[in-house]
């Protein structure tokens, strides 16, 4: 119990004094997780739109698969991407194993299903009339998709936030693909796991509080946008 209280004060201390190591780790964490969220959004939102607007055989199975992949274990993604990027793996030549770039690829794959799935849900929330109206006014399919996406933009933002939340809080991919190299691939979650195993419980709790604070700030910012 004492450790939690002390961890809280240490977190404040680390933030107020701008502790260089904590700042560096925090910035790297943001850089990597925001990159994967950006990349994930770029791929998943159009893909989600496509799945929603098109009727094709096996659409239901695709939806089931996407929803199942919400539970994709981070360690499994870590392992698969590790094998892909390993020197003898198919993408070994890219030299991405144990680099931030490799971590971004892993995290992107990890959050794709969630963003795709929630994009579809967001689009389902838009009234059907808009689609019909838009089409009947002579809009092309792409114009229609664009119109509906605009209607659903707040819900889409929610999908992106969810993806970001999963990326920044995961430890499996970061550890297996990044290797937790000090000053290079070490992020908040992997530092927490390392410091806990070294017995620096309070520092771990402090870092956990910092991570939650970042999440809070980002959510506040996005809520601000949503209310406008």
């Amino acid at each position: 119990m004492n450790e939690i209280v002390n961890g809280f004060f240490q977190a404040i201390n680390l933030i107020v004094t701008l502790n260089p190591e904590v700042m560096e780790i925090t910035l790297r964490t943001l850089e990597i997780s925001l990159s994967s969220t950006f990349l994930g959004t770029l791929i998943a939102v159009p893909l989600g739109g496509l799945i929603y607007f098109r009727n094709f055989k096996g659409k239901r199975s695709v939806m089931n698969l996407i929803q199942t992949l919400y539970s994709l274990p981070t360690v499994l993604v870590g392992l698969l991407v590790f094998l892909l990027l390993s020197y003898q793996g198919p993408l070994g030549g890219l030299n991405l194993l144990f680099t931030p770039g490799g971590m971004i690829i892993g995290q992107t794959i990890l959050i794709l299903p969630i963003i795709i799935g929630f994009t579809i849900t967001a689009l389902k929330g838009v009234k059907g009339e808009i689609k019909d109206l838009s089409m009947s006014l002579g809009a092309s399919e792409f114009q229609t998709i664009y119109t509906i996406m605009r209607e659903a933009k707040y819900a889409l933002l929610g999908a992106v936030i969810l993806g970001f939340g999963r990326a920044i809080s995961e430890v499996g991919v970061a550890l297996m693909i990044g290797g937790n190299i000090r000053g290079f691939t070490r992020v908040i979650t992997t530092t927490m796991s390392l410091e806990t195993s070294k017995g620096n419980i309070e520092l771990s709790i402090a870092l956990g509080i910092i991570l939650l604070t970042i999440a809070l700030i980002i959510n506040l910012l996005l809520n601000q946008i949503q209310e406008k």
């Binding site: 791929i43 893909l47 680099t99 290079f184």
Partner: peptide, 29 residues
């Protein structure tokens, strides 16, 4: 026309991935 659009979309997605991979591979070495 539809097939062309799908093709364009596919090319765009592949391009994004390729650019990202190229950018990432130089990142941090």
């Amino acid at each position: 026309k539809r097939n062309t659009k799908i093709l364009v979309l596919a090319v765009v997605i592949i391009a994004i991935i390729a650019v990202a991979a190229a950018a990432l591979s130089g990142y941090g070495q």
